[in-house]
Amino acid sequence: MIVRIMGEGQVKLDDSHFAELNKLDDELLAEMETGDEAGFRRTLSALLNAVRTMGTALPDDSLEPSELILPAPDASLEEVREMLTDDGLIPG
């Protein structure tokens, strides 16, 4: 699966990593619902770092269709809230 981190680029990520990413996504969703800004920042950073370390960055000139789009590391709680679906940022 190709994941885009807004403002950074694309990462190719194996589907086997989605259980771990979904745990972080659930934490992020809970923190957003309670307005826990510090927790939100910490979990968003952990989620993006997990994608970066578990995946393989694609070259900057690569334009693969992204199956999942994640917010930029400096995205606000409100910006991320606008990106959410019922499942959070990561479906499943």
Rank of each mutant, 00 (worst) to 15 (best):
D61T: 13
E27C: 07
M32G: 01
P59I: 10
E33H: 09
L58K: 01
A30E: 03
L28V: 14
A50R: 15
M32K: 10
A46R: 15
S62G: 07
L48A: 12
G35K: 01
P59R: 03
V51D: 03
L47M: 08
T53H: 01
E27T: 09
T56M: 03
L28N: 01
G35S: 02
R41T: 14
L44W: 14
G35L: 01
A57F: 09
L58F: 06
D36C: 07
R42M: 05
G35E: 02
F40D: 01
R41N: 11
M32Y: 09
A50G: 03
M32N: 03
S62Y: 08
L44T: 08
A46N: 09
G35Y: 01
G55C: 01
D61Q: 11
A57T: 10
T34Q: 02
M32P: 02
D60N: 15
A50E: 00
G39K: 04
L29I: 15
D60T: 13
A38I: 15
T43K: 04
G39L: 00
G35T: 13
R42V: 12
S62F: 10
E31G: 08
L28P: 00
A46S: 15
G39C: 04
F40H: 03
A38C: 05
A30R: 07
E37Q: 14
F40R: 00
V51M: 00
L48S: 02
L47W: 08
L44Q: 09
L28M: 03
T43E: 00
A30F: 12
R41Q: 05
